[in-house]
Design a protein around this nucleic acid. Sequence first.
RNA 1: GCGGACGUGGUGGAAUGGUAGACACACGGGACUUAAAAUCCCGAGGCCUCACAGCCGUGUGGGUUCGACUCCCACCGUCCGCACCA
Length: 879
Amino acid sequence: MASERYNAPAREKHWQGVWEAAQVFKTKADAAGPKCYVLEMFPYPSGRIHVGHSRNYTMGDVFARYKRAKGFNVLHPMGWDAFGMPAENAAMERKVHPGRWTYENIEVMRGQLKSMGLSIDWSREIATCSPDYYRHQQRLFLDLLRQGLAYRKSSKVNWDRVDNTVLANEQVIDGRGWRSGALVETRELTQWFFRITQYGEELLAALDGLDQWPEKVRLMQANWIGRSQGLSIRFVLDAATAPAGLDEVEVYTTRPDTLFGASFLAVAPDHPLAKAAAAQNPDLSAFCEECRHLGTSVADLESAEKKGFDTGIRVRHPFDPSWLLPVWVANFVLMDYGTGAIFGCPAGDQRDLDFARKYGLPVKPVILPPGADAATFEVGAEAHDGTGVMINSDFLDGMAPEAAFEAVASRLETTMLAGAPVGARKVNFRLRDWGISRQRYWGCPIPVIHCGDCGVVPVPVGDLPVELPEDATFDLPGNPLDRHPTWKHVDCPSCGKLAMRETDTMDTFVDSSWYFVRFTAPHADEPVDLEAARAWLPVDQYIGGIEHAILHLLYSRFFFRAISDAGHGAHDLREPFAALFTQGMVTHETYFRPSTAVGEKPLWLSPDEIELEGDGATRVARNAKTGEAVIIGPVEKMSKSKKNVVDLDAFVAEYGADTARWFVLSDSPPERDVLYTDVGVEGARRFVQRVWRFVDEIAQRVPDKSPMPESFSAAALDLRKASHKALHTTGRTIEGLRFNVAVAGLYEFANVLGSALQPRNSAEDLDWALREAAELLAHMIAPMMPHLAEECWARLGYNTLIANEAWPEAEPALLVDDALTIAVQVNGKRRGELKIDRTATNEQIEAAALSLDTVIRALEGRPVKKVIVVPQRIVNVVG
RNA sequence: GCGGACGUGGUGGAAUGGUAGACACACGGGACUUAAAAUCCCGAGGCCUCACAGCCGUGUGGGUUCGACUCCCACCGUCCGCACCA
């Protein structure tokens, strides 16, 4: 009987049907085994899934399936991050309602995910745009509002004029909107905020406990939170120069030790002192105005010169009232960090130095760098902010900067001025409160009502959800909710008078800040079913892209705490994600036609529009339709915008899901990018067929599993050892998410199996070992190529599902070798090897090593000084 | 500027401080075939050699160690994050 090729696309559909019919992946709350919550960051339903997206889900699925096999009760859900701008943009461009566009995409993408054979409990599916979801989010908002964790304030915000909405600080990348890429402008608006700063300290401190998170992500978050310890110092204004009504200014510094090096104060253009002074001085007023218009983009900031304007105001030095310092307005001082005012120490800060040099302000060194001569030391072009000894600093002279910090802090803390200390230790954060108002339609409505008499009135819980009106119009820019004729006009729940609904919706990052909680009980009446949350949280393994290192992951850590503190907590759990893995992307070459007009965007072409000729450096690409020459662009992450995507449906139809899964796991370490190539895919496809051929052949040769033979020949034993070792390493590497190594191990095992199949003669013990190898191979590939595994399992005569089978335990005796080959080094250089019994003593090994010809030759007659024997590994002869 | 990661054959990469280059791709040779596809076998870091042996090799230079891709220091390069945060 000749082997048939394995028809992956057809068989995969079959097995998916079987799994679904048997509800194999539906999570049972009462199932035995420890819980394991495996989650991949849920997708935005943008249209279609391509091979690039599939890597994330494949990794999660391999882990989830492995954990299931290991006896864990696994929760592995999937949902849709379904609110967001693209839906609204589609509405504007194609005149289709955002809801319809979104749900149609979900339909398509759900089918695509299912075609990958993911072990997902689809009964828990969530779409954040569904009122069933967002009514709970509105409830959470109201609870945060009650707790004072949500509030409204007028502030400067980042305005994206392309998307016509506000952006949070975290959503501004290099001065541009994270989605639109438009240069962000500053606007003053009244907005809703979440008080994430209240958790700054905790969010920072708790990073230490996240030992299963990548160090990189923890660092990025720590930097983002940006805690700094310093001193807040009150400077008294010189009465002769002070504007009316103002008599002091507060300055924040992290370097109070350099206080004697102060040569000026600088305040932000929006600082009250600047405004007061500007009111008297038209030139200063003009300068402040100019500052406001500068500095919205990174490019501006980089090129922007340090500019200042002397207000004429003078302040007294805290340690010497007769020492007057000028107060300048400076364009580089930020109003919303610290106190919006600094003291400048040019010797110790590069910016202050540049500023001082430009405006001829004094530069007095206060820290003598190690090795410098006090008599001759002068500040040159570079400020010194490092270590050294304090000089020119009165009572601080001779101290280290750290000690001087303490000395200044404790002295100013106890110096009283008008009944309060002059100085106070203060911790500052770079983190700002999270602005969540978005002037868009396709988001979760903020459930409050503005009443002329009662002010901001929360929508009563019984009136939730505040649903989006279906009949909004999308033909104009701006917020469709705001211009809807009736939606916003409601009665005040408090006094009954006509009032106005809030027309802003929530940032979609709110939606994704708690979906993992909702998955634990997606149909509960309360937002969070405490029992389910306690049973399942935290997420044991979270998998997603590094691009969320700050945004989503910081918001979620905050929001989980905030809702816990508002009564929706699971025990005293504070961190939602116990382990995080950030996977690399699938990349692909790009192709484009050179554009004719200057500055015009390239005209991207997708890989299936391309014909490639030649190889290596001589490859040329042509447009398959027109034959026109096409430029091969750089390799980039697969993305719709550059068209360098491979559609999942087409791929699965041709190669099958298992090939896609195997390919995206192969070669590259999972945290690094993997390059999509046709030859790489061919390699994966070949392996699928190879596994099938082997199992098929073994099933023919050994149709039934007979009792285990009493003894095994050397060949059979070697095969058994290879099988069990492969089983062991496959498990270990999957556990550690080192999928590329797991894949390599399975290739290696397949090579061994292929060799073992070569002798066509049948022997009882070898047959038994072959069958064992085939069965174990089916188990080993099951997490990665689940359909093929089922096919193999069935071919071996089982009528159970391998998805329901336990991961076999490797026999410990088969994991060790009795005869070892160990390397022998002379002075650290490999000179030979030694075949030796595993139980040989160190003395025996040493003697054997020293008698090797190669060792004797390498020693060249020198006496042996020392022999290091590392049992079962290596011998090093030192001579 | 600050912080971090990384640097291994033609390529992707492997290697608890212990035989560097597993495994795969590409490549070369061979088997099977009328032929092709598919499949299977063999080879392969560099230098020198008919071969054996030998020498050199994990960005560069030092260090620690019996032993370093791995740990430490400095430098070079690439990538990422933050960026007027006082």
